[in-house]
């Protein structure tokens, strides 16, 4: 599904990713953990096509496509989804309208018919139920005036509606209290599917108490220095990130 080989990327003069390798198979949930500045968010942004990053070498294959050649919207239409660490506010843009436009843009690119208002509302209600969310966020402008928890819930709801094949959750747990964290994690778990892969980027082990990963990777100085099962996360929790520098050096 996703194959990252020797990925190097710069921000300005600084090389942030220094040869990152990662293989993600269908239905797998991978956690990427690492200290601040290790390149976690850069990796998420490079995958989703954000400007401001220069890929200097390496390749990213997604379902047989050369991902790095594609515009952000083309990646999204292929089934890539980034849940933002800091979801962006769009004043005046109705949340429901936004989602409908996004979903239909994706459907259209796949040669599927666009959903009409009624079918869309039906789908929305169904997904709200799966995630145990109420519809209070839908009538408001996208993320505008939302609390931190509301913004994250909205990201998960968008994910449920857009049905990506690969979801990247960029520090989705940051800034959430334990209740909000549980709601978000429950949502993510409800969306686990044999056809849907996920990359959960996080600083803390805490989120992984709720979202159980198949694989855990430790990112340091722009590359993955260790991979393992979920027990690796527990080990990180115990030992902290201090030991990593020695390994990465």
């Amino acid at each position: 599904m996703l194959s990252v080989k020797g990925l190097r990327a710069n921000v300005g003069e600084n090389e942030i990713l220094t040869g990152l390798d990662l293989e993600v198979g269908p239905g797998e949930v991978h956690a990427i953990m690492g200290p601040n500045g290790s390149g976690k968010s850069t990796f998420a942004h490079v995958l989703s096509g954000r400007e401001g990053y220069e890929v200097t070498s390496g390749s990213v294959q997604f379902d047989g496509h050369d991902l790095l050649e594609l515009e952000p919207e083309e990646r999204a239409r292929l089934g890539l989804f980034l849940a933002f660490q800091y979801p962006v506010e769009l004043p005046g843009v109705n949340n429901t309208y936004f989602l409908k436009a996004a979903l239909n843009a994706i459907r259209k690119s796949r040669g599927e018919s666009e959903l009409d208002a009624v079918s869309f509302m039906r789908l929305m209600k169904e997904r709200l139920k799966v995630l145990h969310l109420d519809d209070s966020l839908l009538k408001r402008p996208v993320n505008f005036g939302f609390s931190g928890g509301e913004k994250k819930r909205n990201e998960i709801f968008q994910m449920a509606m857009l049905e990506p094949r690969l979801a990247i959750l960029d520090e989705t747990d940051s800034g959430l209290d334990i209740d909000a964290l549980r709601i978000v994690a429950d949502g993510v778990n409800a969306l686990r599917d044999p056809a849907r892969s996920m990359i959960v980027v996080t600083h803390y082990q805490r989120l992984l108490d709720y979202i159980e990963p198949d694989h855990v990777h430790v990112l340091a100085r722009g590359r993955i220095i260790r991979s393992g099962g979920k027990e690796l996360a527990l080990e990180l929790e115990e030992r902290g990130y201090g030991w990593i520098d020695e390994v990465a050096a």
């Binding site: 954000r50 989804f81 933002f84 979801p87 996004a102 968008q158």
Partner: peptide
């Protein structure tokens, strides 16, 4: 970018 990352 936010909009584009949603397919728009």
């Amino acid at each position: 970018f936010y909009c584009r990352s949603r397919g728009l």
